[in-house]
Design a protein around this nucleic acid. Structure first.
Lengths: 213, 213
DNA sequence: CGTACTTTTGAATCGCATCAAATCTGGTGG
DNA sequence: CCACCAGATTTGATGCGATTCAAAAGTACG
């Protein structure tokens, strides 16, 4: 297991103490596989290596509600403080996850203050990031969401995307068509400078300027 | 300070050790007041008693991006691990906040394992809740968001709102008009049973049924 | 070289935002 | 108790922008 390669969004993973690492199991998961069901006794905390999982809650009618889609990072962290899982978890594509026994995880948090601090920092950052994303998703227009993303996730009005535009569109809550059209409009506008995966804000959107006067 | 009244969404507040509580200061804030600016040295962690604050980042053009709106609960938690604030914080209405010295807060987390556990649980729950909200906000239709909210925030298809519908609309990322119309349509549909602040799903939405077949 | 996926453009449609205005509600003070 | 006000609720008409469906061109990878 290459623990060094994961540090980017996963500083907490790198800080996992040796003792706990040795207890981690790698699970290969198939598309459609159910990792655990609602009501199951909690046994593990997971981190995704590859693929995608969804946390789902179903009503009696059979319609389902996606509580979370994960492609990387931990999931079911909230299970650290309960006895049973509160949702189903299903893999939507082939991939693999890392499984940590929850008791050992709790014990490591209690004992290892470095790990504990890394974990708290990880959670706090996640909260900050998710709050920003909620704000972004409540913006009405595609252009506003693009700006918000660059301003909050990039630095100094410049961002280098680490994903395909299609995936970015999903993160922005847009269809890929809408994002493509918005980007090309903003570029021919002179508002954005797009070179490959690097996107820079050239000047504030005219509409935004009005607000600031 | 009535610490008991806040336990609802704020279990972590109730677990704050006596020593740290004694260091807390209550700040009365006016509309438009700036609590701190980007680049300021971090001195405090805050919790809102009343009113609303916004975490804002500005670009050079003067247009601003809202990273977070808070009406209750902690904000700027992520500042526990940095030296300077990463955004401006402005009050958008009159209210008051609780101010904890960040050093004492960190020390309390190190020393008091009860408080520490409560804090980690608080953060993990916040993460879970925010992820669900992001999923909800990326749903296209107003009806889907209403269902998602009831399924994920309520229990057994029933929810009792603790806020006005206008405020709920904002949380759902909708205009209040859209929410009012959607609710009355779903009620005359026979899909929802609405009695005051109690909303119950009577039957799955027909459109959802198709998916589950 | 072929396959799967992303990127791109087009046309039509639909749902939500927007602006407007009326009604209802809870709380305040006279 | 009533008048009054601010805010929430409700309904209507209109337009825009994103979705949707469709299809073509580009690109990475084995």
């Amino acid at each position: 297991m290459d623990w060094q390669a994961l540090t980017a969004d996963q500083a907490a993973l790198a800080r996992i103490p040796q003792q706990l690492r040795m207890l981690a199991e790698r699970w290969e998961i198939d598309k459609g596989q159910i990792l655990f069901r609602i009501g199951d006794r909690i046994h593990s905390v997971f981190s995704i290596i590859s693929g995608e999982v969804r946390l789902i809650r179903r009503d009696r009618g059979g319609s389902e509600v996606v509580l979370q889609r994960s492609r990387g990072g931990f999931f079911a962290e909230a299970s650290l403080d309960s006895k049973v899982y509160h949702c189903d978890v299903v893999a939507t594509e082939k991939g693999s996850v890392l499984r940590f026994p929850v008791l050992a995880f709790r014990a490591a948090l209690d004992v290892d203050s470095d790990f504990r601090n890394a974990w708290m920092i990880h959670l706090a950052r996640e909260v900050r990031k998710l709050r920003a994303q909620c704000e972004r998703l409540s913006l009405r227009s595609a252009a506003d969401r693009v700006f918000h993303y660059i301003e909050s996730e990039g630095s100094d009005g410049i961002i280098t995307l680490n994903q395909s535009r299609k995936a970015w569109a999903a993160e922005l809550g847009l269809t890929h068509e809408a994002l493509y059209r918005t980007l090309s409009r903003l570029q021919s506008n002179g508002t954005l400078d797009i070179t490959g995966h690097r996107i820079a804000i050239v000047q504030a959107d005219p509409a935004h300027h009005l607000q600031s006067v």
